[in-house]
Design a binder for these strands. Structure first.
Length: 112
DNA sequence: AGCGTGACCATGT
DNA sequence: TACATGGCCACGC
């Protein structure tokens, strides 16, 4: 059967991140069935060459962009995130907490 | 085999 | 929130 390599799993986990949402490196690794391999995720992304991979949805665990502020990649990532409705301020991503998310679900873009 | 480096993380202060 | 420390794992020299 398909004995997938860790790389394939991580890539799949990243592709599984919904539009407008973000995830941490460790979180991605965990979802890929590789707990504790956050650095592996980072390395995969640095080596990836798939333009269809939503790498911009992957951030550090504290919601910060993993690039130095002002760098090219940094601007690229923040811009893409904003294009998906994610707020980015000071190199940090305002990620909706559960409570805020619930609020948004009730009063925000949802039905009614 | 040892050492340094890296798109990291959890914990403590 | 910011900084320091220890841990993790893969790669190159």
């Amino acid at each position: 059967m398909s004995a997938k390599s860790p790389e394939d799993r991580i890539l799949a986990a990243i592709r599984a991140i919904p539009h407008g949402q973000v995830a941490g490196y460790g979180e991605v690794a965990h979802r890929a069935g590789l707990p504790g391999r956050a650095r592996l995720t980072a390395r995969i992304l640095s080596q990836n060459d798939d333009p269809a991979l939503p790498w911009h949805r992957v951030l550090r665990s504290d919601g910060r962009i993993a690039f130095p502020e002002g760098s090219k990649a940094f601007r690229e990532q923040s811009q893409r995130l904003r294009a998906e409705g994610v707020k980015v301020e000071g190199g940090r991503v305002k990620r909706p907490r559960k409570a805020d998310d619930l609020d948004a679900a009730l009063w925000g873009p949802g039905p009614r």
